[in-house]
Design a protein around this nucleic acid. Structure first.
Length: 592
DNA sequence: CTGGGGATGGGGCCC
DNA sequence: CGGGCCCCATCCCCA
């Protein structure tokens, strides 16, 4: 017996969930647009995605191969099997772009549809671009960056984008006209037959065939042996400043272990090389570093930490500046202008504000920062090509699931950092948000988006005022010829001095794309981003626990080794961590 | 219930 | 730019 529309209904549900951001466990970054989706769906649709989502919760796509607008169509296709083309924009051009993207993403069926369409219209498939670069090629794997750069400046636009505005338009049309250009995946559809249970059958052509698990190891680096995975933002990631480069990520290098190999760049597109990790980790290898929580740990720590990647938002301190995280996402607007975040809000951040945004489970990344203020949701347009708002989707396929952040946003959700974009309500935890999201009916959900401005990363050079008074001058004196004019601290080299001087600036040059928090050092911002995204590249081989910083892992390892290098000279007590010794010493010294 | 210790997260900042 | 380390904050467990 078989339910005739089972697969269809299932897909419909999934697409609706995507629209709401419900249970989405991966974020795909396309230029400065973020899309939320489900790993399973992506993995089922292409082996390329499969390899990417295996270890990462954040995927950066090469902006030369796909732009937000196109990716939105791709995503819609994946979830619906329908291809909505736009007529506003030269359809041929659109199909060409789609073909490029499909090829890149290894969505063979989609590529075939586009080719067919192009052929019909006389156009020729992708002139300049390779029809199928392999996924790997160019892939700069994600890991990279969401870095600050993304938002950054003017260069942030798609290269080809004439005008964002224009770009968005098409979309509108697109939706409404679905009829004409709507295309369905054809036979490939093993849909019906349910081939593999997961529907993927059809979409992922490649998948089946040999389906080698590419097993890209995107991880930044993992402690020896454990091949960890995630890391979308590997520390290195920041490397680039321009979005385009985003794709290129860099990080890869790091991420990939030595074993990584490089593939030839795709022609036409550049020379980037991709590195894949031959040793690829297969799913099973990932066990250790599963997306999910690591194996239970012994004792106490287990309880808490296992929640892995994140801890609930509870911990958030709601300080004035806390920014809610939403399920949609963000990223800089593309309007080029970018004003420095600094400009606006920069100053508002006090250094002390320490809010921590907890990421969402798994994909962590989840939450998106919602940034703009009140209306987090906006209209439908698609900004930047892309997309639109997150949750969106009213009818069905539209959804882009992300939102642009607006500069200067200052949502006031207090402790409720998990915000439902459609209605703007905030919740203290992702679970609550998810539960709430379900209450929305389809029609209530719109794709919203807003063209925001994004925070621009101003370069150091732009710093303005350095007047902040500062602390005492300490530091020893030897060979420290470079002295800070503000506080008199001295350093051994000019670079360090320069770095230090930034701490006096009122404007912090490096904004977090997700929450808007500003940092004086890019590295700190990148590190911070990892916490949003739940990226914990450093895993403990013993218990599987993962950390965002190498140092934390080192520290943690003492738990297993029993080493307690820090001893209290007053009572002889020993500690595994220096900070705990310090805290302990306070107990000795404090009056109370 | 409370205090102390263990352990972890995040930011700042120096090297 | 990554590595380290310091400081602050917090959570959890246990006595």
């Amino acid at each position: 017996m078989e339910l005739p529309n089972h697969a269809k209904h299932l897909l419909l549900q999934l697409n609706q969930q995507r629209a709401k951001g419900f249970l989405c466990d991966v974020i795909i970054v396309v230029e400065n647009a973020l899309f939320r989706a489900h790993k399973n769906i992506l993995a089922a649709s292409s082996i390329y995605f499969k390899s990417l989502v295996l270890h990462d919760n954040l995927i950066n796509l090469d902006t030369e191969m796909v732009n937000p607008s196109v990716f939105r169509q791709v995503l819609d296709f994946i979830y619906t099997g329908k291809l909505l083309s736009s007529t506003d924009q030269s359809s041929e051009q659109n199909f060409s772009a789609l073909l490029t993207a499909a090829s890149y993403l290894q969505l063979h069926d989609l590529a075939a549809l586009c080719r067919k369409k192009l052929k019909r219209s006389g156009g020729k498939p992708l002139p300049g671009k390779p029809s199928t670069p392999g996924p790997l090629s160019r892939l700069r794997l994600n890991n990279q960056r969401l870095s600050s750069s993304t938002p950054a400046g003017p260069n942030n636009h798609y290269p080809q984008t004439p005008s964002d505005a224009d770009q968005q338009q098409p979309d509108e049309g697109l939706r409404d006209k679905l009829s004409d250009d709507e295309m369905f995946v054809g036979s490939s559809g093993k849909n019906g037959n349910g081939g593999n249970g997961n529907s993927n059958g059809n979409l992922s052509s490649g998948g089946s065939a040999g389906e080698p698990d590419l097993g890209l190891d995107l991880s930044k680096k993992s402690p020896p042996s454990v091949g960890m995975a995630t890391d979308a933002l590997s520390p290195h990631s920041n490397s680039q400043e321009s979005p385009q480069s985003a794709s290129v990520s860099t990080t890869n290098s790091a991420s990939l272990d030595d074993s990584s190999a490089t593939l030839p760049g795709v022609d036409g597109c550049g020379s980037e090389t991709v590195e894949i990790n031959p040793s690829s980790k297969t799913s099973e290898e990932t066990q250790n570093q599963p997306d999910g929580p690591p194996p239970p740990k012994k004792s106490r720590q287990g309880s808490r930490k296992n929640e892995w990647p994140k801890r609930e938002a509870t911990g958030l301190k709601s300080e004035d500046h806390d920014r809610p995280l939403v399920n949609g996402v963000i990223v800089g607007p593309k309007d080029g202008r970018s004003s420095g975040a600094g400009g606006g809000s920069g100053s508002s951040f006090t250094s002390d504000q320490s809010f921590q945004c907890k990421d969402e489970e798994e994909g962590g990344a989840g939450e998106n920062g919602q940034d703009h203020s009140e209306e987090s949701c906006q209209s439908d347009g698609e900004a930047a090509g892309g997309g639109g708002g997150r949750g969106g989707k009213r009818g069905g396929n539209r959804s882009a699931n992300y939102v642009y952040r607006q500069e200067g946003f200052e949502p006031a959700f207090g402790d409720n950092l998990y915000v439902c974009i459609p209605c703007g309500k905030g919740f203290p935890s992702s679970e609550q948000l998810n539960a709430h999201v379900e209450t929305h009916t389809e029609d209530e959900l719109y794709i919203k988006e807003e063209g925001g401005t994004f925070i621009k990363e101003e370069d150091e050079e732009e710093a303005e005022d350095l007047s902040a008074p500062v602390g005492p001058s300490n530091f020893g004196s030897e060979a420290r010829p470079f002295k800070c004019t503000v506080c008199s601290r001295s350093y051994k080299d000019p670079a360090t001095l320069r770095q230090h001087e930034k701490s006096h600036w009122l404007t912090r040059p490096f904004p977090c794309n997700i929450c808007g928090k500003m940092f004086t050092q890019r590295g700190t911002m990148t590190r911070h981003m990892r916490s949003h995204l739940g990226l914990k590249p450093f895993a403990c081989e013993e218990c599987g626990m993962r950390f965002t910083r190498q140092y934390r892992l080192t520290e943690h390892m003492r738990v297993h080794s029993g080493e307690k290098p820090y001893e209290c000279q007053l009572c002889g007590g020993k500690f595994t961590q220096q900070r705990n010794l310090i805290s302990h010493l306070r107990m000795h010294t404090s009056p109370s």
